[in-house]
């Protein structure tokens, strides 16, 4: 489950003044191959990546996913830009892509070419000048906004988004009609959109 404010965490996400400066640590990994800095990133994120894998029902491959993602973080640390996304968002997208890759490996067809997962999930225009102020605050605001969602909507979003379940599966799990579930998801998307847009001004 999402942690509530009551269950305070020793290390919160980046970009809100608490906890390590992930951008700086990743910079040290990128430019100096700094193992100690990498270890800090690992200590925080590896257990969360593993939890994500388990939530996605990939118990068997959870350790493999952790290793794949952290290897990729080590190799691509120089591509991280804190003006584009916070470190946890960046690491989330790597985790998501590597998860898709692991699943794709199982279902390979005889097709001539494989379209790169990363390319399929890439946001094309990354204009740093526009984004620089936005990235850190987007995640902070997102965190607040999620906590403001009514519980039934938050659960629906979490199950679809974080546990990778289909709408049908989630509807059955929550014992509501499919239409009701879709309604909740749409409402929550609308609310998140409104809450986030309010901060962009």
């Amino acid at each position: 489950m999402l942690r509530t404010k009551a269950q305070s965490m020793s290390k919160t996400g980046p970009g809100n003044g608490e906890g390590p400066d992930w951008g700086e640590l990743l910079g040290r990994v990128a430019h100096h191959g700094d193992t100690a800095a990498f270890r800090k990133v690992y200590d925080h994120f590896a257990p969360r990546i593993k939890a994500y894998a388990i939530n996605q029902g990939m118990n068997q491959q959870a350790e493999e996913l952790v290793q794949e993602v952290m290897t990729s973080v080590w190799r691509n640390a120089d591509k991280y830009r804190d003006s584009l996304a916070s470190a946890s968002t960046w690491i989330f997208t790597i985790t998501r892509n590597q998860r898709i890759d692991l699943l794709r490996k199982k279902g390979r067809t005889k097709a001539e070419m494989t379209v790169d997962t990363e390319e399929l999930w890439q946001i094309p225009t990354e204009d740093t000048t526009i984004r620089s102020i936005e990235a850190g605050s987007t995640e902070k605001k997102m965190k607040e906004s999620i906590l403001e969602l009514p519980e039934d909507q938050m659960i629906a979003v979490r199950k679809v988004y974080y546990e990778g379940k289909t709408h049908q599966e989630v509807a059955e799990e929550l014992n509501v009609p499919l239409g009701t579930l879709k309604g909740r998801l749409r409402l929550s998307m609308k609310k998140l959109r409104v809450m986030l847009e309010a901060t962009e001004l």
Binding site: P47, R48, S88, M142, Y162, L192
Partner: peptide, 14 residues
């Protein structure tokens, strides 16, 4: 994607 980042950082570590 930031939603994913939040869910990842807020998850209970394994």
């Amino acid at each position: 994607n930031a939603l994913g980042g939040v869910l990842l950082s807020e998850t209970r570590p394994a």
